[in-house]
């Protein structure tokens, strides 16, 4: 039988298999790999030297000059420790990841060098619209408490809005995917409201909603609801009827058909809707904060700009960037985890 053959293969470990299938690397290539891993460290040191040795534009006042250096050292430290850890791990895949990310990390340092040259060292990008990085970092640290509060507000809005949107979207999506009658009533609503960017409603909602917070949650949830509803609906409608028949034949009642077949089969679509909903939520949230709500990072940006404090503005943009990246990546991670069964099915 087929499985005996596979059993024999199983005696190899995954690493051995990969090593067998890959061409043996030459000594030169191996050395090159390690040199590549050191690239970020080298470029990082160049960045420090550049910052220290090249004279600043004389008029610029640069208090607490060492923040930037500390920042660079921390980044380099993180990368270096990952590299060292990867040398001691038995699994080669971690080293490969480090190796893979090395040129990119080096490029980040190179960009920081370039940016420093264009701002602090030459004022080629005009101050105060383009503050140098040390200034941004200092602004971030100086206003840390307030930025944290704003971040928490943003996160709170995002989560309330996002999850209520997902929850309601799932319910309507499942009902409409299942029942022709429900679809009859909800579909036109989606067709008309769907294409309108949710931000359009902000001015109206700000007036109607009892509190700004609720209004903002609603705005965020609306776009998410739309994305999740349509995706879930399509997902459920496109399920192979054979799955339902097989399940019924195996003793499922109609409630079980929903929870054991319809929903799991639609999960890939649901995640697609959730990912799409997340990006629309981020957009809606920023716009809502900038226009109406008097808290959160979006509001902070407008506020900092009004005071012409561009360093603070960049600080909050960077934080927004980090938050949204982390949130999106977490979602993608969960998605990969849940959809493990698709491996080998798609691609």
């Amino acid at each position: 039988m087929e499985n005996e053959e596979i059993l024999e293969n199983n005696e190899l470990t995954l690493d051995e298999l990969q090593a067998k299938e890959m061409k043996e690397k030459t000594k030169f290539q191996k050395i090159l790999d390690h040199v590549t891993c050191f690239l970020p460290i080298i470029v990082g040191f160049i960045a420090i030297l550049e910052y220290k040795l090249v004279p600043n534009v004389p008029e610029f006042y640069n208090p607490k000059p060492n923040t930037y250096i500390t920042f660079l050292l921390i980044l380099m430290g993180i990368f270096f420790s990952l590299y060292v850890v990867s040398l001691f791990l038995k699994r080669k895949s971690f080293f490969n990841t480090v190796l893979h990310k090395a040129p990119l990390t080096a490029a980040v340092f190179a960009f920081l060098i370039l940016y420093d040259c264009l701002t602090l060292k030459s004022n080629y990008l005009l101050y105060p619209f383009f503050p140098w990085f040390n200034d941004i970092l200092n602004a971030m640290i100086g206003d840390a408490a307030f930025l944290l509060e704003c971040s928490l507000n943003t996160l709170k809005l995002l989560f309330y809005g996002y999850f209520s949107g997902v929850l309601v979207g799932l319910i309507t999506g499942i009902i409409c995917g299942y029942s022709k009658k429900a679809e009859y009533w909800v579909d036109p609503l989606i067709k008309i409201l769907g294409p309108i960017p949710t931000a359009t409603w902000i001015p109206l909602i700000m007036v109607i909603a009892s509190t700004l917070f609720k209004g903002c949650v609603f705005i965020v949830a609306l776009g998410v609801w739309f994305a999740v509803t349509t995706a879930t609906m399509t997902g459920i409608k496109s399920i192979d009827k054979a799955y339902f028949e097989a399940a019924q034949n195996m003793g499922c009642d109609s409630k079980q058909l929903i929870f054991k077949i319809a929903i799991p089969a639609a999960v890939p679509n649901i995640f697609q809707g959730m990912t799409q909903g997340m990006s629309s939520a981020c957009v809606a949230l920023m716009v809502a904060e900038m226009i109406g709500v008097e808290s959160g990072l979006g509001w902070y940006i407008v506020w900092a700009k009004a005071w012409a404090n561009y360093s603070k503005m960049y600080a909050s943009i960077i934080i927004i960037c980090i938050i949204f990246t982390v949130v999106t990546q977490t979602l993608a991670f969960i998605r990969r985890r849940v959809l493990r069964w698709q491996e080998g099915l798609v691609r």
Partner: peptide, 27 residues
């Protein structure tokens, strides 16, 4: 339809989101 008259389809129609063990345990 009921499990006492069990059908095996031309296409295997296994539930792709369940493991082999879970598919067998499904009914």
């Amino acid at each position: 339809t009921e499990p006492n008259r069990g059908m095996v389809f031309q296409k295997p129609t296994l539930f792709p989101w369940l493991t082999v063990g879970q598919n067998i345990a499904f009914s």
